[in-house]
């Protein structure tokens, strides 16, 4: 009776937890794979015994099944295993199975860079405004985890360049850089060994600085209206503010108000408003205020 109960328990344990059966067989390993293999390199594995067997190599990156002759070495060419990762191997001959595990590592030679440059557009003169992140891959698109020296270069439209160097860690390196004072497209480049990747960053003018406008009557053309025009609008670094930027003219007079949002065209904003003697006319763009005029030429 006691032996029957013991057998039953053992059976239940084995049926319920199939992994344990696997563990038991996995420990009986005679297959000798190298612990690490570089992706894309040839290598061979020796076997013992005689007769034929089936070799399985399984990993998330590659799957191989091959009939081999025991007692001979098994050769792998450069194209057989090129995805880095952890692999398990089974050598099945009749009822016996030999197990092994090994790693395929990335090649040390960088072949491609995934370069994330952000933002693609930012105002001039912004400290640490540009970020660059580079992931380094080998020719088989494996992430190279060994440290690599990566050079980052941001050059503005006048050719002035900022250069930073960073060492990759676990396959990634990053930098932050300042945007230039001069507006225009900037080239942002990451380079490792002789592999380069380039992005374009648009450095755009900042907020308008000291907006100034003038007002004049339209004379005989229309005495009831006043013409308003700004001087060319620039940011605080002297860059012309892009056309299309909205400039708001507001005219306040006794008991009323007129206003208009005008886009800059060819660097200036101009419009006409009803003419009111004693009206105060102001100009602004976004949250930046310009000058004020007290109009005394109205009706």
């Amino acid at each position: 009776m006691r032996s029957w109960v013991t057998l039953l328990c053992a059976l239940i344990v084995v049926v319920t937890v199939p992994g344990l059966a696997g563990h038991a067989s996995a420990q009986a390993s005679d297959l000798r794979f190298p612990q690490k293999v570089e992706a894309g390199t040839a290598f061979s594995v020796s076997t013992t015994g005689s007769g034929s067997a089936t070799l399985y190599i399984i990993g998330p990156g590659d799957t191989i099944r091959r009939v081999v002759h025991l007692g001979e070495s098994i050769s792998f060419g450069p194209d057989d295993l090129h995805n880095a990762g952890h692999y398990v191997a089974f050598l099945v001959s009749g009822s016996s199975t030999q197990n092994a595990q090994f790693e395929v590592t990335a090649s040390h030679q960088a072949a491609t860079l995934s370069f994330l440059a952000k933002p693609s557009r930012l105002p001039v003169n912004l400290p640490n405004g540009v970020s660059g992140v580079a992931y380094v891959f080998d020719i088989f698109r494996n992430l190279i985890l060994q440290p690599q020296q990566i050079s980052f270069e941001l050059s503005d439209s006048s050719g002035r360049a900022q250069i930073r160097s960073a060492t990759s860690r676990d396959g990634v390196a990053w930098v932050k850089m300042n945007s230039a004072a001069k507006a225009g497209p900037a080239q942002f480049q990451a380079e490792v060994a002789s592999v380069r990747n380039k992005r374009v960053i648009q450095q755009v003018p900042g907020d308008p600085c000291s907006i100034r406008m003038t007002a004049h009557g339209l004379g005989q053309k229309d005495k009831a209206r006043v013409a308003l025009e700004t001087e060319p609008v620039r940011d605080c670094n002297g860059n012309p503010v892009p056309d299309g930027t909205i400039v708001t003219f507001t005219e306040t007079y006794q008991g009323g108000q007129s206003m208009v949002d005008v886009p800059l065209k060819r660097g200036v904003a101009k419009t006409e408003l009803p003419s009111h003697n004693g009206a105060v006319i102001s100009v602004a763009s976004g949250v930046v205020m310009g000058n004020e005029i007290r109009w005394s030429g109205g009706l």
């Binding site: 299309g244 007129s258 208009v260 005008v262 886009p263 419009t271 006409e272 009803p274």
Partner: peptide, 28 residues
């Protein structure tokens, strides 16, 4: 598009009881 430009002219507050803001839009 940056156009059309609309002037908002003659804005005036009307007090109670018909409290409102009136004016006229001018398509420039």
């Amino acid at each position: 598009s940056a156009d059309p430009v609309i002037g908002i002219e003659g804005q005036k507050l009307t007090p109670l009881p018909d409290s409102s803001l009136t004016g006229s839009l001018v398509n420039q």
